[in-house]
Amino acid sequence: MIFYISALLIIGIGIYALIIKKNLIKIIIGLDLIETGINLLIVSIGYVNGKTAPIFSKDVMNASLMVDPVPQALTLTSIVIGASELALAAAFVVLLYRKYGTLDIRKIRSLRW
């Protein structure tokens, strides 16, 4: 249960950073926190009390003793995609800084069209 609660808390902190913070890097950190929280949530959904990792070995050959592999596989994808999204965001931030000389989103107002 604590896993759920802390995952939700992490998500909440992330959303808070996303809205309240004015600094672009803080905003990206907020995004990253949301992603981490969601990954934690998904993996903890798949957890089953008293079962082991879904990897067969010479000791563990019984499939009924394993936790759910599907959330883990999904989270694997999610982490990689999160990292690539982050790299892209970081590149944007650096470019914005080059152009405007600031990280404060209140001063970067060219999103209007």
Binding site: I25, D32, V43, G46, A53, T75, L76, A83, A90
Partner: peptide, 25 residues
Amino acid sequence: LQAPDVAMSEAAIGAALTMAIYIVA
């Protein structure tokens, strides 16, 4: 949580690489 694969990904990508990207930024 018995997810070694995910742990490994998170450690290698989430912690190390992401942090490097942040630091560079």
